[in-house]
């Protein structure tokens, strides 16, 4: 079996320092105002009974990516190891992938004028390094590796820990596994936003 890259984010260890967000920007030269990787910070409950949560977000490199299915020019493609990449020279900027991604992972790079998103720092992987966000994480909350390798850290965590993914009801089969993520954080509380809560 070939490689299947995945990321595990252990929220019990995340301190909310946003270093991953900064490292990603710096590594990938991401322009101002847009993010490949960002940390959502939320507060649930009502003072004084509240909890603070952090949710680092990035492209889920889904097994069945919506963005790949809808791209009219096949600019989005998937490697054998599961990494979903974009051919920046082919992308026409129709933005269908952005509309179709359930995770808001994509955006238009205002400088390059094409769709863009996390690549798992593909060039770093090729050089035998870890993605910049994993490399910089001060608490080891981010773990990256091959989910098909039973000796890898991601395999052990996914096998032994209670993990969940964002919006499992979609047929995207996302490959970012969270440990200790509240479902309230993984999806927008739409009834709260539009009203309609009974």
């Amino acid at each position: 079996m070939g490689k299947r890259y995945a990321m595990v984010i252990d929220l019990r260890k995340c301190v909310g320092c946003h270093a991953c967000q900064v490292a990603c920007k710096s590594e990938n030269n991401v322009p101002l105002g847009v993010f490949r990787n960002w940390v959502d910070e939320l507060e649930t409950g009502k003072f004084p009974t509240v909890s603070r949560q952090r949710l680092p977000r990035l492209c889920n490199h889904c097994k069945n990516p919506s963005c790949l299915n809808v791209c009219p020019v096949k600019a989005t493609y998937q490697l054998e190891d599961g990494t979903v990449l974009i051919d920046y020279d082919r992308c026409i900027g129709c933005k269908y992938c952005i509309a179709a991604c359930p995770y808001d992972a994509r955006f238009i790079n205002p400088v390059r004028k094409t769709a863009e998103k996390c690549t798992y720092c593909h060039e770093r992987l090729e050089a035998g390094l870890q993605p910049a966000c994993v490399n910089t994480c001060i608490s080891g909350a981010r773990v990256f590796g091959d989910l098909n390798d039973p000796t890898s850290e991601v395999f052990k965590l996914v096998a032994t820990q209670p993990v969940n993914v964002s919006k499992p009801e979609t047929n995207n089969r996302p490959q970012t596994y969270y440990i200790g993520a509240d479902d309230k954080a993984l999806r927008p509380n739409l009834l709260n936003i539009v009203g309609g809560e009974k």
């Binding site: 910070e41 649930t44 955006f107």
Partner: peptide, 15 residues
């Protein structure tokens, strides 16, 4: 139960 996002990135309507 209310959830307040203290920090999040802005997403645009592209279409």
């Amino acid at each position: 139960m209310t959830t307040v996002h203290l920090f999040n990135t802005n997403h645009e309507i592209y279409w």
